[in-house]
Computed example of a mutant assay.
Amino acid sequence: MDSVQVRPMHEDDLASTERASAVTFFEADQSTRRVSEPEPEPRSAAASKQWIERMRFFLNVDPEGCWVAFDEDADGGRTVGFAISQNRDDLWFLATYGVLPGHQGLGIGKRLMGAALAHADGRPGIFSSSVHPGATRRYRMAGFSLHPQMRMVGTVDRSTLPVVDGLREGRPDDFEWMDRLDQDLRVAGHGPDHGYMHDTLRLVVHRDPARPGYTYLDDKGQASLLAAAHPETARKLLWEALASSRGDTLVNCITAPNEWAIDVGLAARLDIGQEGYIAVRGMPVPAPYLASGHFL
């Protein structure tokens, strides 16, 4: 498509890119929904605003990793694809990537991924992948290993909650040791991402120098990211997340090396299912670790 230009993202692309993301992932959720699952819902206005603010953060921190496919001829010009990636020291991660359904199969995704991978400049990489056949083929051909993920859903049986000790609310002065833990688990620290997540999520830490760990919890009490030096610490942090949950909850991005999370979820009477892949290149799958969808 001659009218589609793959170029660096600009600040004024954010709204159009959010709309493309919302449509792309809503249709993907509809096409992959299991019969037993509820119907997907369109992204809410609050979630759209949060998405834009998160992408603005990425654009400010590492703009060279942010790319859009822009169709000059579509409705006066609009985003039809996007690839938002970031470098953090020696690690590259893909925060989000997609092409509008009506523009798939035309080579746009390949061009976007090529631009994002060029930004990686040979760094080890990680991201969370859907099951879309075209996308997974592209990832594998780029040298990524695809590790199946599991997720656990349901309402926590509160009679199963154990007494958990050694945890406290996290603070910005924890970021230094958290980054050292990140380096041990995933090649590089989260760096500026910790500041953003701390401002938008609840941080709970286990400060024991021998077995440190942390987790960020969203407004539903769900673990958005969890990292620990030992499975026992990881279990404590996940139990805290489950204790904080309200109504149905979700534990996702569970890979085979993280069976400790499956054990906790089953003990809490959650149901297990499959969900996409963790894609890694030049690094092992992190453990004990539950990745964040956007911050990895």
Results as ranks from 00 to 15, higher is better:
Phe26Thr: 08
Leu59Asn: 08
Gly191Thr: 03
Phe70Lys: 09
Ser159Met: 10
Leu112Gly: 06
Ser21His: 11
Arg151His: 12
Ile108Trp: 10
Met283Trp: 01
Leu203Val: 05
Asp157Met: 02
Ser16Trp: 07
Gly65Val: 02
Tyr289Asn: 03
Gln149Pro: 02
Ser128Cys: 12
Gly293Asn: 13
Asp89Gln: 12
Ala135Leu: 05
Arg7Trp: 09
Gln183Lys: 13
Ala69Asn: 09
Met1Tyr: 05
Tyr277Asn: 01
Glu39Met: 12
Lys220Asp: 06
Trp51Cys: 07
Ser85Phe: 04
Ala142Trp: 04
Asn60Thr: 14
Gly76Pro: 06
Thr160Ala: 15
Gly125Lys: 05
Leu201Phe: 13
Ala118Met: 07
Asp71Phe: 05
Glu11Thr: 14
Ser16Arg: 08
Gly195Met: 07
Ala234Gly: 08
Ser244Tyr: 01
Thr255Trp: 00
Leu242Glu: 00
Phe58Val: 08
Leu270Trp: 00
Met55Ile: 08
Asn252Cys: 06
Leu266Ile: 13
Ala261Trp: 00
Pro212Lys: 08
Ala22Gln: 04
Thr200Trp: 15
Ala268Cys: 10
Arg123Tyr: 04
Leu59Val: 12
Pro286Asn: 03
Gly134His: 13
Pro284His: 06
Ser244Glu: 02
Asp75Glu: 14
Lys110Met: 09
Val280Leu: 10
Asp208His: 07
Thr233Val: 06
Val35Ala: 15
